[in-house]
Design a protein around this nucleic acid. Structure first.
Length: 847
RNA sequence: GCGGGUGUGGUGGAAUGGUAGACACAUCAGACUUAAAAUCUGAAGGGGUUCGCCCCGUGCGGGUUCGAGUCCCGCCACCCGUACCA
């Protein structure tokens, strides 16, 4: 008997599929199905997370093909971004070469997986054909008022004189220079996504096939809140200001206000700074550090007393402080602080010795705030102390609404809806991205490039030997003619955020070679994406930006109606994590090592014997070197083993810590299936009584495996396939019955292990390709069981069981239960306190 | 800090509020073999046992229920995101 030879079989079937153009997406009169996995960044080599992601998509794509859909399953490359420039800096090459080389390596690694991808649609976002269309989109969005320029804060490295990504700021210091990073304001292009906040929030309601958690995260990110905007009059006008406009989501706590805090960038703070050197020093000092929300939130809360006061409408005055925790971006850049009911305000008040005034107390507890702010949920009822709107007992939310009404009636302020969502700054001071197609003209100002001049191509002759944007220092690239007046002008040297590239690629796949960003006919046929699959790390930004782009593309005529929500169903797979292995260099910095370079038994580096530090598993990333190359599994055991292996065991939405142990056992199982097929091929046993049992098991397998695929529980489908294989293996049924069951097994395995499935299908005399064969349907009649086993619990613990007819009436079951030896023993002659019969499920006897 | 999630045997995991541990991995035992590999068969949560069974057990502490891995409250640990990593 010959062993199953994956190395020979897999290329054979891949060639056959190619020859038949099996995966070419065609517009037909069948219903269409668009499966998309988030496209990869070409980091160099595929990792196991990719295999997991693309195998899942392939299972769906092949399953839907079998179900009679015309399937679109494309692949491309999210090819712009920082790592290419970092590589150029580190090793002197060119980002373009690095990127295209990586793409070709990764494509070469993906092809052997036998994915049902229409490779004719492949593109990379760094292809001028793609980014040129993106520039056209940008110009249309500019015209439609969806893009504008505004000041934005960036991480500034004062030594390298360059803007840093958040990732490049480590503990508040520049990653290369080590200099303390400052927050600096630059004029940047931004998409007006916050204008669509309400729409984007509202749209979430219809996304029934998205994970609830993703919708929740997006909802919280958009952060709609209703609050009060009001102006506190300054006791004495200063620098042209006679009041401070604040925004608060807790106007109900106005009585507890003990100070006003304004952002260091607030116009009043800036005005005061002109004559106050100490304030300048304070503002400069608190500007140190990175721009992330996390860094800002975790930074020590610090303030500067301006000495100014404002009039409190409830009587008295409040001091005005400049505080580092007030953000100019949100609301009005000014707040009132209520220490009793906000921990941050309380910490601030204790630090600077400001009063703490309770506004409300718990219903059943008069305790006043000391060192922990009292912040019950807004839905809890509390007892109010001298509430401005006159409430005595009410929930926080009721009090907020009442206080806004009260303030509006008294003319103190107005209720206002605010969103946490900020506009999307898209300018990047980097080379390897899509050039922003505008020109700066001394006479005409900012002028859009003419569409006939697109694409604005990146120059190839650039170097990365010094920090900063090579486009900025290129000798000639900036120089151009103003599209409006024709005079010499300068190109914009900023490029676009790479999130722009990934915000419309799904639309481009519907017509990847069109001369316009999309072909509306093709988009109308293929959109929306029926099933989108990707990492949960994209739950907010990428998905929100794509939802915004779909709307923007509709407004600019690039997408048809009905595409506002471009992803009908979303599945977020868990992270593939792995421990990190590191040593220290002579400067005490971490040096990371690949898992294959490490001896885990001795916890040392194989090459040098140096002891390593093992850090608990986190998301695989190239920079931490905690990546595992799936190619060894593919090379050793074949693609089907790799595919089956990543699908089995772990539920797809859960994070998995990667371990390759077990790959061999997977390969053995697939060989066993092949052996079983060989066996069945040769068998000639006559039909017999076991045939019916096998038919039943087959029906159940169809049912359960299909349910698993439909429900993205591939691990359960795999478990059922193991079970069915064991059943078939042990079955005494006749040759024909076993052959029929084996054909079904091949079909059910086909989405997961397509090569082996084709092989077995052809051995069993199946017609054509298994992927084209209609998906098997379970015979309903065979799924029904006549008798069931009913467990008997005594006081909630299982003690016994009885066999009953499926539809046995309750009295009959009760009678049987009362005769059960265990029950008789437990009752000891008495009567049960309670007898609970759940038909078809369980019996509980309470004694 | 904030938002979201996860936690079950040695391991990955299964379980519409209803038999906890399906299905696998690793392990052990047996068959086949001169031997090994491969293959096949079987055992197995932990502890106790008079071999009938009994007790304990789903991160921790409470609660609801005839019945909780599942629902509620309070913790702990880890993961993802936190707007310039992609």
């Amino acid at each position: 008997m010959s062993r199953y030879d994956a190395a020979a079989t897999e290329p054979k079937w891949q060639a056959a599929w190619d020859k038949a153009d099996l995966f070419l997406a065609r517009r037909t009169d069948q219903p269409k199905y668009y499966v998309l996995e988030m496209f990869p960044y070409p980091s160099g080599r595929i990792h196991i997370g990719h295999v997991r992601n693309y195998t899942m998509g392939d299972v769906i794509a092949r399953y839907k093909m079998s179900c009679g859909f015309s399937v679109l399953h494309p692949m491309g490359w999210d090819a712009f971004g920082m790592p290419a420039e970092n590589a150029a800096m580190a090793s002197g090459g060119h980002p373009k070469d690095w990127t295209y080389d990586n793409i070709s390596v990764m494509r070469g690694q993906m092809k052997p997986l036998g994915l049902s991808i229409d490779w004719t649609r492949e593109f990379a976002t760094c292809d001028p054909e793609y980014y040129g269309q993106q520039q056209a989109l940008f110009l249309d969005m500019l015209e439609a008022g969806l893009v504008y320029r505004k000041p934005a804060i960036v991480n500034w490295d004062p030594v390298d004189m360059t803007v840093l990504a958040n990732e490049q700021v480590i503990d508040g210091k520049g990653w290369r220079s080590g200099a303390e990073v400052e927050r600096k304001e630059l004029t940047q292009w931004a998409f007006a996504i916050s204008d669509m906040a309400e729409e984007l929030l509202d749209g979430l309601k219809g996304l029934d096939d998205w994970p609830e958690k993703v919708r929740l995260m997006q909802e919280n990110w958009i952060g709609k809140s209703r609050g009060l905007q009001m102006t506190f009059a300054l006791s004495a006008p200063v620098g042209g200001h006679d009041g401070i406009e604040i925004y608060t989501t807790r106007p109900d706590t106005l009585r507890g206000a003990s100070f006003i805090a304004i952002a260091p960038e607030h116009p009043l703070a800036k005005a005061l700074a002109e004559e106050d050197a100490d304030l300048v020093a304070f503002a400069t000092d608190v500007r140190k550090g990175g721009t992330t929300e996390e860094a800002l939130e975790k930074a020590e809360k610090r303030g500067y007393d301006t000495g100014l006061t404002v009039e409190n409408p409830l009587g008295g005055t409040l001091p005005v402080w400049v505080a580092n925790f007030v953000l100019m971006d949100y609301g009005t850049g000014a707040i009132f602080g209520c220490p009793a009911h906000d921990q941050r305000d309380l910490d601030f008040a204790r630090k600077y010795d400001l009063p703490v005034t309770d506004t409300f107390v718990a219903l059943d507890d008069d305790a006043r705030v000391t060192n922990t702010a009292f912040t019950p949920p807004k839905t809890d009822r509390v007892r109010w102390i001298d509430q401005p709107a006159g409430l005595t007992e009410a929930t926080g939310q009721e009090a907020i609404d009442a206080t806004i009404d009260w303030a509006e009636a008294k003319g103190l302020g107005t209720g206002k809806v605010q969103y946490r969502l900020r506009d999307w700054g898209l300018s990047r001071q980097r080379y390897w991205g899509c050039p922003i197609p505008v020109v700066h003209c001394d006479d005409c100002g900012v002028v859009p490039e003419a569409k006939e001049n697109l694409p604005v191509r990146l120059p190839d002759d650039v170097t990365f030997d010094v920090p900063g944007n090579p486009l900025d220092r290129h000798p000639t690239w900036r120089e151009c003619a103003c599209p409006k007046c024709g005079k010499p002008a300068r190109r914009e040297t900023d490029t676009m955020d790479t999130f722009v590239d990934s915000s419309w690629y799904f639309a481009r796949f519907t017509a990847p070679r069109a001369e316009t960003p999309t072909d509306v006919d093709d988009a109308a046929y293929w959109m929306n994406v029926d099933q989108y699959i990707g990492g949960v790390e994209h739950a907010i930004l990428h998905l929100l930006y794509s939802r915004f782009f779909a709307r923007a593309m509709q407004k600019t005529g690039h997408l048809p109606q009905g595409t506002e929500e471009p992803f009908d169903a979303l599945f977020t797979q868990g992270m593939v994590t792995h421990a990190i292995y590191s040593t220290k260099d002579d400067k005490g910095r971490d040096v990371y090592h690949l898992p294959e370079d490490v001896d885990l038994d001795t916890k040392t580096l194989r090459a040098t014997g140096e002891p390593i530090t093992v850090t608990p598993p986190v998301k695989m990333s190239k920079s931490k070197k905690n990546v595992v190359d799936p190619m060894d599994i593919i090379a050793t055991y074949g693609a089907d083993t790799a595919r089956w292996f990543v699908l089995s065991d772990s539920p797809p939405e859960r994070d998995v810590e990667w371990t390759a142990s077990g790959a061999e056992a997977t390969a053995k199982h697939l060989a066993r299936v092949h052996r079983l097929a060989t066996d069945i091929e040769r068998a000639d046993r006559a039909a017999n009584a076991a045939d019916a049992d096998l038919a039943k098991a087959t029906a159940r397998a169809i049912q359960e495996v299909t349910d698993g695929i439909e429900g993205f529980a591939f691990n359960k489908s795999v478990a059922k396939l193991y079970e069915f294989t064991n059943t078939l293996h042990k079955s005494d049924a006749g040759a024909e019955a076993r052959r029929d069951a084996m054909k079904v097994l091949a079909q059910l395995m086909a989405p997961m292990t397509p090569h082996l499935a084709e092989e077995v299908w052809s051995m069993m005399g199946g017609e054509g390709f298994v992927v084209n064969a209609a998906w098997p349907k379970a015979d309903e009649a065979l799924l029904v069981e006549d008798t069931i086993t009913l467990p008997i619990q005594i006081n909630g613990k299982k003690k016994s069981e009885i066999e009953v007819a499926k539809d046995a009436p309750k009295p009959e079951i009760e009678a049987l239960v009362m005769q059960d030896a265990q029950v008789v023993k437990a009752l000891d002659g008495g009567q049960p306190k309670k007898l609970i019969v759940v038909p078809g499920r369980i019996v509980n006897v309470v004694v």
